[in-house]
């Protein structure tokens, strides 16, 4: 380990909080998705740091699964963004506050 684990955790916690703030504060759907990306990357940093701490490869394998999950999530959520834009003509999250059925 070139740096203490606590510093890696501090970096990743700061990144996670920034992503969470982006999700909570922004109203554009694209910016909300970008916030989700930032949070997932922060988790990946934690996993790689843990992998280096315990000298095991499992943490890095979890990051690969995280990346696969992210690409699946991004593809389907961007398809939904296109769908919602065609449906209501806007991407402000406040426009989608009603439920049908």
């Amino acid at each position: 380990m070139i740096v203490p684990m606590s510093h890696i955790l501090a970096f990743s916690a700061a990144l996670f909080v920034m992503g969470l703030a982006c999700v909570l504060a922004q109203r554009n759907l694209i910016m909300i998705l970008i916030g989700v990306e930032i949070m997932l990357n922060a988790v990946g940093l934690t996993l790689v740091g843990a992998s280096a701490l315990w000298q095991k490869v499992d943490g890095q394998i979890f990051v690969i699964f995280l990346m696969a999950m992210t690409s699946a999530e991004v593809s389907i959520s961007l398809a939904m963004v296109v769908y919602l834009r065609r449906r209501k003509g806007t991407l402000e999250a406040d426009a989608f506050d009603g439920m049908k059925g």
């Binding site: 990306e37 990357n41 740091g49 280096a52 890095q60 990051v63 690969i64 990346m67 992210t70 690409s71």
Partner: peptide, 17 residues
């Protein structure tokens, strides 16, 4: 990631993300 001993994850971070 590269500095933490994960060169493959670093490459995929650039390629995929």
């Amino acid at each position: 990631f590269y500095q933490l001993g994960a060169p493959l994850v670093a490459a995929w971070e650039v390629i995929i993300y």
